[in-house]
Amino acid sequence: MAISINDLNNLQMDVLREIGNIGAGNAATALAKMMNKRIDMDVPKINVLEFKNVSDILGGAETLVVGILLKVTGDLTGNIMFMLDIESARLLVSILMGEEASKYTDACEFNEIEQSALKEIGNILAGSYLSALSSLTNLLIMPSIPDLAVDMAGAILSVPAIEFGKVGDTVLYIETEFAYGPSVVVGDFFLVPDIDSYETLLKALGVTN
């Protein structure tokens, strides 16, 4: 049975929001450990958007963003993507590598080590998010190695949007804000279960229709 996002009731939305909260909380802890810094986190916002408005996420379809995508296999199949704007990505890289933020004028340039660092950040964030989900649901959830793309927000968002497009006309995503001192890192998680996995997920959480 396929479930459309439009059909989700308030309770189910609440449960998904709570998953986002726990998942992102875990991710923030992992990030703090990795960086050995204090990381603050805002309560995640769960958003449902129509396709035509999707590209407004993170400031417009042509804004440069970093997307880190992992495939999910196991009891739950699908994809998870973590997306953040270029400034946030630069900041994370510089904190992680203990350097001054690199001063490329061409913002889309990340060198190989920086790209690898970003993938690792995505890996840890998505991994801890999924492990929270896994222990909450008792489902086996295995993430793949991460892949990275730096491009226009619209182009990167088309990847999860297309997956959502198979079941409905809206995209569900969880917006998280991490803060490190005065600097704020804004990132969005897109957990995109395959069509059949929605049922599995909601059932495991005890909130089927």
């Binding site: 396709f51 226009m152 088309s158």
Partner: peptide, 20 residues
């Protein structure tokens, strides 16, 4: 926008941003 279409008479400019 994504999953939209439109048409128009001359003079016009049609654009779509960030095709992936």
């Amino acid at each position: 926008g994504m999953a939209e279409l439109d048409s128009a008479c001359h003079p016009c400019m049609l654009t779509t941003l960030g095709l992936g």
